[in-house]
Computed example of a mutant assay.
Amino acid sequence: MSDTVSFGYTDVTPSEKTARVGDVFRSVAARYDLMNDAMSGGMHRLWKDHFVRRVAPRPGEQILDMAGGTGDIAFRLAARGTRVTVADINAAMLEVGMQRATKRGINGLVWTEANAEVLAFPDRQFDAYTIAFGIRNVTDIPAALREARRVLKRGGRFFCLEFSTTTWPGFADVYDAYSHRLVPKLGKLLANDEASYRYLIESIRRFPDMPAFKAMIEEAGFVQVKAEPILGGLVAIHSGWKI
């Protein structure tokens, strides 16, 4: 990994990025749904439903939902009868998820504080690995991808839902203006936190586009890697298999 990494539009040391991202998510944890609504116009719920359909979870499977602290993906997976381990580096996000699960009467989830770059799970433990709107906040993405492959069983599948770069003419300009100008203001209005929302938008702009991220997944050792654009690539589902 290089000496500096991106934190939004700023280049910082890897350790500083990890600390700053932690601060961002501790700040927004209690208002995470509001954050996602602000960045997606409320469409994140539909994208997550579609994502889980692509994962095609089967009863009895073990799935690791990485960066899944508040439980949005885990709840959907558990409804299909899977055994879900929810892992997140941020304890505040996990706390929100556990509270939400209690309120909804969802039992059986395993909650664990974990860094995606250095997982404590043994090799070949999980049937699937999911990460939704989390990979762009990881300091060392290649390391996280290698760890994802390591903890998957042979034949295991990797699925990532993340903001990307839309290729639709005109729409890209509209969303760019909306996200850069309006979302931070909404963050200030709804959560009294303009800076965190600004970082989250900037982090989208610094994240690799679909071909570049697809190549990173392949470099980590996954095969049959695919990128499925949504809204022309505003959001994308990347997937791959471990053989």
Rank of each mutant, 00 (worst) to 15 (best):
G8I: 01
Y9K: 06
Y9S: 11
Y9D: 13
Y9N: 12
T10P: 03
T10Q: 04
D11K: 15
T13K: 08
T13S: 14
S15N: 10
E16R: 11
K17E: 08
K17M: 09
T18R: 13
A19W: 10
R20F: 05
R20H: 03
V21L: 07
D23K: 07
D23Y: 07
V24I: 15
F25N: 03
R26L: 05
S27G: 13
S27T: 15
S27I: 01
A29D: 09
A29T: 08
A30H: 04
R31A: 10
Y32N: 02
Y32D: 05
D33I: 00
L34K: 09
M35C: 03
D37E: 13
M39T: 12
S40T: 15
G41F: 06
G42Y: 02
M43E: 01
M43S: 13
M43R: 15
H44R: 07
H44D: 15
H44M: 02
L46S: 06
W47S: 06
D49Y: 11
H50W: 14
H50G: 03
F51G: 00
F51W: 03
R53G: 11
R53T: 04
R53K: 12
R54S: 06
A56F: 10
A56H: 09
A56W: 05
A56G: 02
P57N: 00
R58C: 06
R58M: 14
P59H: 01
G60Y: 02
E61F: 08
Q62R: 14
Q62L: 12
I63F: 10
M66G: 00
G68S: 11
G69D: 11
T70L: 05
D72L: 04
I73T: 13
I73D: 00
I73S: 06
A74H: 09
A74E: 02
A74T: 04
F75D: 09
F75V: 10
R76W: 09
R76K: 14
A79K: 14
R80Y: 12
R80I: 01
G81T: 06
T82V: 15
T82Y: 04
R83V: 03
V86W: 09
V86I: 12
A87L: 10
A87K: 00
D88E: 14
I89C: 01
N90Q: 09
A91M: 11
A92G: 00
A92F: 12
M93R: 04
L94V: 01
E95T: 13
